[in-house]
Design a protein around this nucleic acid. Structure first.
Length: 604
RNA sequence: CGGGGCGUAGCUCAGCUUGGUAGAGCGCUUGCUUUGGGAGCAAGAGGUCGCACGUUCAAAUCGUGUCGCCCCGACCA
């Protein structure tokens, strides 16, 4: 199957089909810990973080480290239950792996270096270095290597759901970016990419399972193409909740048939030409003490889009690789890497580039004609017949009226110069489907990621299996992550109003909140009896048995957002009724006969 | 890692400029009244003013250092 069209989905209402735990839950508010707060804690900036603190879901212990309080932990349990159910349906099997990983294992794949300071490191009493697992590729490969030696044992898809650790330099936005966080990570193992039992098959099943999970959690999300990785093609998709507070930038075609992460997003065809005749003489300008493109543009009273920016990179083949983009565009290193056909490429070290003769900060495309061992890639928007402002290849000078053909010359016709899509896409760019669609920029919270890993880890750690001819063959892998904490955050971001949280029914901490106006007499008896009956019917119930005034109970009820509230008061009781109200609906609620309440709560 | 802000009661904050026995609201405890959308009155409990050193007769307040938290940017999944 092929990954067709990343679609924009919105949550649908799903009746709940399971309890949070295997047993009946009827909790009393006075016997649990739900510390609601009227005032907004100073440290919280985004709505979900504020509400999570005010509703008593979480508490910060230190930067990026949180306690899960009873209410929040129940939500997490429901999210994890959904994940476990869908993993089971997709054929994945759960394991539990250590949080602590010996450093030498990480060294074998080079991820000790790759993660760098983001790795939580510690030493045991013997001085042996370890780290707290940021993910578990190495550990799972080591495990599979120990027990799987034949192609007959594959495919295999194992997952874990547990705390992971990253020493983020700057944790922020509450649970959105923290240092200890729950994560579901699945790893699949195959002998082939295509065909039955192959990586593609499992990838597709996981993709579908992810859609079910995020639908059931009530999220409004977009599936986007993400960085391709070692296998290429549609080898990676991210599941992005559409939200202003998201840290990722995504681009969607307004035709609705393409979406991608900004780092990955291709840009549609653009016309270009390097051959127009010059209409003015090239002219140097003294531009001292102007550190950025914007500063130079302001000084010359032009727009950044009137300038050419030349970035000096170097590939792992050692060749200087220059990318030319318009002043208001950003170079995309991975696109440049692909265009250059090298496996590694990075922005050149300033000192090394200066030594090689580049006037860093003032480089112009003309260096391609002055130096032989240089290749030049020009973004189509920079490859235009017009006069440009660009660097003068000497410190503190730019030039006006740069013309490609006149000022760069015959090198343009050599294979050292190419026009290619080498920049980040941005709002307003043409869709890569080339169907007239225009890309629109928005923000997303990454809640899931499916990725075809290939044999990177199995190769590094020596995992192979025998095929049917006794040959050792490599194992290809996929990995599939979900952030349950981010699901909770995202759900609140999209399902809240001025009064508090409005939980999607499947991940609500309880199904029904029973609010007796007074905790005494017939109100108390009815509340207890109803709670018991609802519990027997498979619903999770919370009774607000506090001796608070009704107003306080109602305000707290709205804040914690349980989908159904049953209010028990004298007037309704006199008619043999209680008041049934959905959190998601405004208005007064309706009277329901006591004997009909269970059915009413169950049918929705 | 660069820039900015903040550490005073469980929470939100005032007091600091100009040094002189630590305050308010919310929450908490007790009593009375009230009782269907965050009640009223009264009486209380609760703080090494992040920490250390220094200046001073005297430091929440001034100085130096340090730790912690938040935000912007850079970085990263």
């Amino acid at each position: 199957m092929r990954w067709v069209v990343p679609t924009v989905r919105s949550g649908r209402y799903t009746p709940r089909t399971m309890r949070t735990y295997a047993w009946k839950t009827v909790d009393r508010w006075s016997q649990t810990l739900i510390p609601t707060a009227r005032e907004v804690p100073a440290e919280a900036v985004i709505q979900s973080h504020q509400l999570m603190l005010r509703a008593g879901l979480i508490r910060q212990l230190t930067a990026g480290i949180y306690d899960w309080l009873p209410l929040g932990w129940r939500v997490m349990h429901r999210v994890m239950n959904i994940i476990r159910q869908e993993m089971a349906d997709a054929g994945a099997i759960e394991v539990m792996l250590p949080a602590m990983i010996p450093m030498d294992l990480m060294e074998k794949t080079g991820r000790d270096v790759a993660y760098g300071p983001n790795l939580f490191r510690l030493n045991d009493r013997h001085g042996r270095p370890s780290c707290l697992g940021p993910t578990h590729e190495e550990v799972i490969v080591e495990l599979v290597k120990g027990y799987v030696s034949s192609y007959k044992q594959l495919p295999l898809n194992l997952y874990q759901l547990q705390a992971k650790f990253r020493d983020e330099f700057r944790p922020r936005f509450g649970l959105l970016r923290c240092r200890e966080f729950m994560m579901k990570d699945a790893y699949s193992f195959h002998t082939t990419v295509e065909g039955p039992g192959g990586l593609d098959e499992t990838y597709d099943r996981m993709y579908t399972a992810y859609e079910r999970i995020f639908d059931r959690a009530g999220l409004d999300y977009t599936v986007v193409e993400a960085e391709a990785g070692p296998i290429g093609g549609s080898a990676s998709h991210e599941f992005m909740v559409n939200s202003e507070v998201g840290e990722d930038t995504i681009l969607k075609s307004d035709k609705g048939n393409y979406a991608a992460n900004m780092e990955r997003c291709d840009i549609g065809e653009r016309s270009s030409s390097l051959d127009g005749p010059p209409t003015a003489e090239i002219e140097p300008v003294h531009t001292p003490n102007l550190p950025g493109i914007d500063d130079v543009a302001a000084f010359l009273r032009i727009e950044p889009s009137d300038m050419l920016k030349t970035l000096v990179c170097r590939g792992d083949d050692g060749v200087w690789t220059l990318g030319v983009v318009r002043g208001n565009h950003d170079l995309n290193e991975s696109k440049l890497k692909q265009a250059a056909g090298v496996s590694q490429l990075e922005l050149a070290d300033d000192a090394a580039a200066r030594e090689a003769g580049f006037a860093i900060g003032f480089v112009s495309p003309r260096v391609a004609s002055k130096m032989d061992d240089v290749r030049l890639f020009i973004d189509p928007d920079a490859a235009q017949d017009r006069l440009w402002v660009t660097g003068d290849d000497r410190a503190d000078y730019h030039v006006r009226h740069f013309n490609w053909r006149r000022d760069t010359g015959d090198v343009l016709d050599t294979d050292r110069v190419q026009v290619a899509d080498i920049r980040n896409a941005q709002d307003g760019d043409p869709s890569p489907r080339n169907d007239g669609g225009v890309l629109r920029e928005s923000k997303g919270i990454e809640v899931g990621h499916v990725f075809k890993l290939g044999s990177k880890y199995s190769d590094a750690l020596g995992l192979t299996v025998s095929d049917d001819h006794q040959r050792q063959i490599p194992v290809v892998m996929g990995c599939y992550g979900i952030g349950p904490g981010r699901i909770v955050v995202s759900a609140i971001e999209t399902h809240a109003d001025d009064d508090g949280i409005v939980w999607p029914s499947e991940i609500a901490p309880y199904d029904v909140l029973i609010t007796p106006i007074k905790w005494e007499g017939e109100m108390r008896e009815t509340a207890t009896r109803l709670a018991d009956a609802l519990g027997d019917a498979g619903l999770d119930v919370l009774i607000d048995d506090r001796t608070e005034r009704a107003g306080v109970k109602f305000k707290d009820a709205d804040l914690i957002g349980i989908p159904i509230r049953l209010t028990i008061g004298d007037k309704a009781l006199a008619q043999g009724c209680v008041e049934f109200k959905r959190r998601a609906e405004s208005g007064r609620g309706e009277l329901v006969k006591i004997e009909d309440v269970v059915a009413r709560c169950n049918t929705g």
